[in-house]
Every structure is written in structure tokens, then in C-alpha cells.
Simulated assay, not measured.
Amino acid sequence: MTNRCFVLGLTGSIGMGKSTTAQMFRDLGVPVWDADQAVAVLYGPDGGALAALAAIDPSFVRQGIADRDAMKQAISGDSVVLAAIEEAVHPLVRASRVGFLKENRTAGLVVLDIPLLFETGAEDQVDAVLVVTAPEDVQYDRVMARGTMTPDMFKAIRAKQLPDDEKRQRADYVIETLTLEGTKADVTSLVKELRAKHA
């Protein structure tokens, strides 16, 4: 790593409590870069990805923002479209991450919140990986409780993600997110450990 700070990659499958855990790091004063949020900015008003998306297909931009439904529909019918979108968006996401790391290079510890960290090979961009996990039934209940997902949709998303047990095996740190209190205690302990080692 070229950064003076220690870069911790945070990942976990859908419904494992990753977003909640990321907020706990923020609450402890640790800068967090969120890959999903970076994409949301690129896809939003005046977003850096809009011109490239419109060049792929004009229907991908509607009313000044990216039309995710149009993109999903196009991707489902043509795998070449997904490759084109990724080729356009990934460098912009990478630039966002690099900018974040430069801005926070003296922070001592930073977190990169990357849902598909292992799937995209992003473990090469971090010093260590933290995987958040929960039992399968807890994961299912959490996702269904959102009210925006069907069992089939959940199954399809899980199929695209590395199995939880494999993620845990490849992680440097694992935190089980069964309770907020337990998760917060584990995050606090990890932050203290990493700051002590890499301050």
C-alpha cells in the first residue's frame, strides 16, 4: 500500500449487517468509503457516469439521472451491455476510492465498504479484510423484513455472491452480527487493536 493509513476492507453477503457495521466504524471516527454510495453519486444528478451511460444507450439516463430499471432490463437480455456498463463505471468508482484514500491518508485507519470485495478482486486494494456474518436463517429473515425482496430475488442475489463460509475462510477478521451490542463491542475492540498496531 502507498497509503500511510491502514486500509481495512469491509464486506459481507446481503443481510449480514454490513451497512450497520460500517456506521459503527463511522461513529468511532473511522473514515468509511462506501462503494454503493459512490455508484449512487455517479448515477445521480450531474453524476460522472451519466454521459458514458447515455453513450451506451440513451434510455439509461432519464430526467437527469441513471435509469437503473432500464439498465437491468438491458443487461438481462444482453451480457455485452453489462460489460460495457462496467467498463464505463468501474474506472470512475476506482477514482472515487483513490480520492478518498488521498483525502484520509493521515487518518491512521480507514474502511473501504465493498459488497463484492472478493468477487471483484478488491482484496488486493486493502491491508486486511473484515467479513460480517450471521446464521443463514437470520440473514433470510433480515432480507425478507425489508419488504422489497422476494425469496427468488434473494436466491438470485446470493447466487452471484461468494458463499459466506468461503468469505469467512478468506477473511483476516470476522464479526458475527447477531446483536447490535455484540457487534458494536467487536467493532470497538477491532478499532482499538488496529489503531494500536498501526497508529
Rank of each mutant, 00 (worst) to 15 (best):
K160Y: 09
V126Y: 06
T133C: 13
I157A: 10
D141Q: 15
M149W: 06
Y140V: 13
D152H: 06
M149G: 06
I114D: 09
A128Y: 05
E123Y: 07
I157E: 07
L116Q: 05
G121F: 07
Y140E: 12
F154G: 06
L162E: 03
G147L: 08
V111H: 12
M149L: 10
T148G: 00
Q125K: 13
D124I: 11
D137E: 13
A159S: 14
D113C: 14
K167E: 02
F118H: 04
L116C: 07
L117T: 05
L112W: 05
Q161N: 09
Q169I: 02
P163Q: 07
A145H: 14
L116H: 07
V132Y: 03
R158A: 10
D152T: 10
K167N: 03
L112D: 05
K155H: 13
P115M: 02
L130A: 09
P135N: 12
A156D: 08
Q161H: 11
F154D: 03
E166S: 00
Q169Y: 00
E119K: 04
M144Q: 05
R158G: 15
P151I: 00
E123C: 07
F118N: 00
E166Q: 04
M153Y: 01
G121M: 06
T120E: 07
R146K: 08
L130R: 06
D141L: 14
R170M: 01
V138K: 08
A122L: 13
D127P: 01
R146S: 04
D137Q: 11
T120I: 06
V132C: 01
G147R: 08
A122S: 15
L112V: 09
E123G: 04
V111S: 10
V126F: 07
F118Y: 14
D141A: 15
E123V: 10
K167P: 03
Q161S: 11
D165C: 12
K167S: 01
D141V: 09
M149S: 07
V110R: 08
E136I: 15
L130M: 10
A145S: 15
I114V: 14
V129N: 00
Y140S: 13
M149R: 04
I157R: 14
A145E: 12
L130W: 06
